[in-house]
Amino acid sequence: MIVAERKPLAEIMEMVRDCKKILVLACRGCVTVCSAGGEREAAILASLVRLGMKKNGRDVEVIEGSLVRQCDREYVDAIDQWKGQYDAILSTACGVGVNFIANLRPRDNVLPALNTTFFGGSAEQGVWSEQCAGCGDCVLHLTGGLCPVARCAKSLMNGPCGGSVNGRCEIHPDVDCVWQMIYDRMGRLDRQKEMAKPAPIRDWSAAGHGGPRKQVRQDLTV
């Protein structure tokens, strides 16, 4: 899922400083699962915005709403139900949702309540960790299913580096060295010999370095 976290309240309060009517808009997609921007978090944020505005002596009307997702045209269109009730949308979706609202609603002032952080999973309750960098050229079949692009601090393709110590990363000593994990896992799968083969120089053009990426499935277009 896409993982995100709430921006610092000071930043949010500055964004909405001059707003009179705010729609705090939750997303029931990924950000609900990672407890950053679902209906519960949006309700908490709406309450905090009301409290913050009261403290600053500003009158504001804050309403709450939610969409199934904010990254699909058909769901974004549902914003019409709050027509006339807001002068700003404070979206608790990931950056994709905020962009979609901006794309589809040219006159709406949409503001991001979250910082979108990474593609990850829930390692344990209340803890999320990055697992994929969305680099567009997956190498997981070569690395035992563990991603060196996302999980190596240096995104090395021929690791581990010289800084790997006792299975830990030199950049973040509390993080397992993913190349040590790959080496150990390939051994368990009886594929350790493959580790001796140097990975070729990587073409990063699929990773977004050439501008925004797009994909089209002709069989699905209408």
Binding site: R40, A43, I44, S47, L48, R50, L51
Partner: peptide, 9 residues
């Protein structure tokens, strides 16, 4: 969390 915030509201 919201219950406690609502008390302040």
């Amino acid at each position: 969390v919201l219950t406690l915030l609502k008390a302040f509201e």
